[in-house]
Computed example of a mutant assay.
Amino acid sequence: MTLLAALLALTLVAGVVDAVSFLGLGHVFTANMTGNVVFLGFSAVGEAGFSVPASGVALGGFLVGALLGGRFGVAMDGRPRRLWLGGALAAEALLVGAAAAVAAAGPGGEGRRWTTTAVLALAMGVRVATVRRLAVPDMMTVILTRTLTGIAADSRAAGGTGPFLGRRVGSVLAMALGAAAGAWLVTHHGPVWPLALAAGGVALLAAGALLSGVRRSRR
């Protein structure tokens, strides 16, 4: 398994997770923190449909997850990368699975919704801290602003050479596909199934990393 393929798969999962959180948990993101900061601004001026507590819960969960992911990366420094990456992905899979279990518990009002949001954001924080440490150009798996900028600013039309075009376009397509799949699933089946599928997908990636490792791709 190449690292690039794993990161593209994680980008697709991020699209699913954010579709579930935005459509199923009430106008909040659990992977895209830029969106939550903007939503806090909307809420501050009284715009309907946005919640300061929900965005705050997501931001707080994400920051805690990023802290834990960073500490895990430091603790695993010097050990085989497959153990570090596999462990981080296993933690993400368990957390997304836990969020699916909370969502499946039935009606619970804002408490259940905020708990699901916090657990998902925690998972995404662990993931982004891990991906950041991997430092693969234009492959953060949860945001596309830099990727889209690179497609245009580094293109031949702009006087560049178009480096990493395949991975950049692939990342955009993976996010869009994940968001579409997540939106369809949450609309027709509720949040549990897409979260369970996302957890299963990440669990497979974790198993692949632990059993065979990941190798870098230069494409």
Rank of each mutant, 00 (worst) to 15 (best):
D154C: 06
V214L: 14
V186C: 09
D154N: 08
R71D: 06
A152Y: 12
N32D: 10
A157S: 11
A66M: 14
F22N: 01
S212W: 12
L12T: 07
G106L: 07
A9I: 09
W184F: 15
V16E: 01
D138H: 08
G86T: 03
G61A: 10
A181Q: 13
L95E: 07
G162W: 04
A180V: 07
P80G: 01
A196W: 00
P191S: 08
A99L: 07
G73T: 09
R215N: 10
V45F: 10
G24L: 01
G73F: 06
P191I: 02
M139I: 01
L195A: 00
T30E: 05
G200Q: 07
L68N: 04
M140D: 08
V74R: 15
W193P: 00
L68D: 12
G78Q: 02
G70Y: 13
L165A: 10
V102R: 11
L59E: 12
L83V: 07
T30C: 13
A183P: 02
L94T: 08
T161E: 13
A100N: 04
R113T: 14
L177W: 07
A54T: 13
A121I: 09
P53I: 03
A14V: 02
R167I: 15
T117H: 07
T187R: 10
A6Y: 04
D138K: 15
L94Q: 02
A179I: 00
W84M: 12
A75P: 06
G97V: 00
V17E: 06
L3P: 15
M140A: 15
G86K: 03
A93H: 12
V20K: 07
P80S: 04
M124S: 05
L185G: 00
V74C: 11
G109N: 15
R113A: 15
S212D: 15
T115Q: 13
A199Y: 02
G73R: 12
L165M: 10
V186M: 05
R132H: 04
T11F: 03
A153K: 04
V142C: 03
A174Y: 15
A153G: 05
A181F: 04
